[in-house]
Amino acid sequence: MSLWEYANPKKFLALSGRILPIAAWGAGLCLVVGLVWGFFFTPDDYKQGSTVKIIYIHVPAALMAINIWFMMLVTSLIWVIRRHHVSALAARAAAPVGAMMTLIALITGAFWGQPMWGTWWAWDPRLTSFLILFLFYLGYIALWSAIENDDTAADLTSILCLVGSVFAALSRWAVNFWNQGLHQGASLSLDKEENVSDVFYFPLLVSIAGFVLLFVALMLLRTRTEIRARRIKALIARETLS
């Protein structure tokens, strides 16, 4: 049996209907465990105090922000090459979730940055890249909602996603270069993972798992909604034609 069989909307609905509750409950469980563990049962950082605990939201959200775009890139490619409708709809469904993850990463980053660096925002390469990523998400979502015909919208957004990915990677590189050019040696590093010890590491892993499952649940839910919306459209079209 081929994996592509699940590209059939009917089979996808059946399968996703079984996965959805598991993912949703798993997400809830992991998030509660990860966040409670992280917030209340880990010691304060000797330098950063309790501020460091925002890591349990910030890092998973940032990870998801990038990976959701990557997932959209893959599903867009599948749509362009194999013309599976579910693939295009999954990309569409994932985009707002990805945009929210990016926004969460930016906002929690600001909350973290304020006490640490004394500023809500710095034009650090990572922050800047996430801001640009957020703009890409906005453009992608705006294009989807501006086009009436679903197949046309799927084609155009897929190509935008492919072109956008290249430019996003290029921007990441450009921003790295640009920032060094601006303030040499004075840049703020966000590489906290390096000095994270096991005490912080395991609740972080649980929290990341929670975010992944949350995304899976939201994405499946939204894709199912999109499929049903397409069914309604097809039914209306059939009614108008006959």
Partner: peptide, 22 residues
Amino acid sequence: LTVGIKRGGLLLSILVLPLYVP
């Protein structure tokens, strides 16, 4: 990208500006 969209001017800006960053 936006040729078929009526009053697509603002959308065009939103789509193109991130691509202009590098």
